[in-house]
Design a protein around this nucleic acid. Sequence first.
DNA 1: TTGACAAGGGACCGTTCGTTCTCTATAATG
DNA 2: CATTATAGAGAACGAACGGTCCCTTGTCAA
Lengths: 203, 203
Amino acid sequence: MAKDTKDMILATALDMFSQNGYAGTNIRELTASLGMVKSSLYKHFESKEAIWNTLLDEMIAYYHARFGSPERLPPIPESLDELREMTMRMVSVTVHDEKIVKVRKLLTIEQFRDERARDLATKHFLTGLEEMFTRIFAGMMDKGLLRRDDPAMLAFAYTAPISALIHLCDREPEKTDGAMAKIEAFVRFFIKDNTASSVESES
Amino acid sequence: MAKDTKDMILATALDMFSQNGYAGTNIRELTASLGMVKSSLYKHFESKEAIWNTLLDEMIAYYHARFGSPERLPPIPESLDELREMTMRMVSVTVHDEKIVKVRKLLTIEQFRDERARDLATKHFLTGLEEMFTRIFAGMMDKGLLRRDDPAMLAFAYTAPISALIHLCDREPEKTDGAMAKIEAFVRFFIKDNTASSVESES
DNA sequence: TTGACAAGGGACCGTTCGTTCTCTATAATG
DNA sequence: CATTATAGAGAACGAACGGTCCCTTGTCAA
């Protein structure tokens, strides 16, 4: 019982914080949308800030559980088609999963105000994807699927444009289909220029 | 006199809004940091929201004056070195100019709450740079400086990673030097793979 | 010198904020 | 059955919010 209510409060808080920010959200609205009265909330959290901190704790814990350990990495693709399919699958999940979208929006909004949000934002938006694809690309180079080059730079050049379009989807959801198509086009463009067979200009 | 005060109010509002957001900023603090009392502010603006709208108007007007017309475009570089130098100059300005940084942070924070901020954010962070470099790259292809390819896709692949690092500078200013170095490395990486001389895999 | 007006100061207004208090209903525990 | 802990309801709190009112000051034109 208590756990359910607490989780529902957190879910609603994530919803409202990600739309209007921490300062722009008030306890009355939050509890009202759960059908309770504001005083009841304080049976579960000692303050508004405690809700925020718990939410951040969960987001950080989730991130580390999901992306923190190397063994949680997806398998190295066996072909360039597989790389494209895996990429599109990952993007589709991250763009369509409501909770993940809200987490990104929340980090975007609060990154300048809260240090922990700031750090998590950099991981979410930049270094996390980069490190992941650095390992993937290094593995694909070993297999001869990609031309030899700095895998970290290649991963950065690959993930940053995709990340930019994911942000576009968060900002303008009606453009999601167009953005997904553009991501796929970009992936094909990227693969075309980095296949191992097109190695001619190497020293 | 009146104009000065109004401008100072707007400057302070930009400063506070970009740090704590619209909802997280209050009139008392804003006016106090200008050494005036809050009631005086209402001689210049009729409400807090009017300040916000004026700020947005100015940002939109500035953007269109600066990037809206094609003739305001920088000249097409005559060499790849020139492209790199021009890029680094542009990035350096955009990252070190305090006002521009604040505008970006403000758009980042408020993009989900205000439709006009949302639209301007997409232009600032994505389509603006993309269109600009589409024209530049098309011109460079005509001059034989870049290998023939879809200039829009190339521009997207070029500007999105740079934009991602600019956002990193906004979020973690202490990483600015590292980010600038990474941008330069990326530009060199990008140029290396897209020079006209390395055209071998074309059909 | 006077009148008009823009601009700032200070007290104050009603509202909303996060939070606390007290009370009741419920359900599990001995 | 009595007891105790839990969760919600409802009223109320002080503080902070955006905004208004009225008064004073400085400036410029007639």
